[in-house]
Design a protein around this nucleic acid. Sequence first.
RNA 1: ACUGCUAACGAGGUAC
Length: 303
Amino acid sequence: VVCYNVLIDGFSKRGETNEAVRIWDRMFEDHCVPSLVTYNSMLNCLYKEGMFDRATEIWHRMVRNGCEPDAFTYSTMIHWLCKQGKVSDAAAIWSLMLKSNCKPDLVAYNALINGFCKDGMVDEGLQVWRMMVEMGCPPSVVTYNVLIKGLCNADKVSHAIDLWQGMGSNGSKPDVITFGILVEGLCKKGYISKAFEVWNEMQNVGCVPNVVAYCSMINGLCKEGRLQEASIIWQQMADRGCKPNAQTYNSLINGLCKESRVSEALKIFQHMTEDCIPTVVTYNTLINGLCVLKRVGEAGRLL
RNA sequence: ACUGCUAACGAGGUAC
């Protein structure tokens, strides 16, 4: 079984759904009995692709064969339903789980909370968070990251900060993702100096920014037209041996374009081609920047 | 080491 499981999940992860299904069929031809992991992997594979009808067949087979769904089963379904905007279906699966013998675990809670938050239902997310505490399931840093992101997106930045500051007394330590989310959220609301406070606090507690965190800070500054400060952060990133990736370059290039400093942007672009591969976003950003300045000819030459 | 949860970039769209 394990071999089949590995193959199914491997194909599923590479997006080769048809191959995964072929292995599943093959498994029966070989008279091998699927395990709980097999069912879970198949459900994951089909839900990811939105193939709910086929998935339901698998679910029924699972039940028919007396294989009890576990927390993996439920959180997989909840996760993909939410990702596809079917939050109320996810909530239905959640109730199904509550009625079953399977108690929700940390990941299941997080998946549901994330679903609510991403759909703009932060209050529901917070309610689930309180519920998990009552049920004796301690929230993790992922739980907080999801909620903080949700609160920022809902323009409840100060509530997000409260949550961040309460993490310690709830047994969670903010990580680089937490700080990145806060920096991004604060910048987007225009609270740059608060973002800098958080940025410094991150270093004070010994959390080392990664390329994503740098990107959030740089992008936030660029969006506010604060390129001077952005380039200082960029320099620090380089000095600390953190290699910028395409997305980081794109943020800076976009910042320069938006300030009509397209020539500088092109210079950065030259530099970029030496240590990473420009993406379609890079070209769109530059072309747009050039076109806005009526430098259409140069824009054409980029193609 | 068989399966499930979290963060960053462009453009477009946002008339009534």
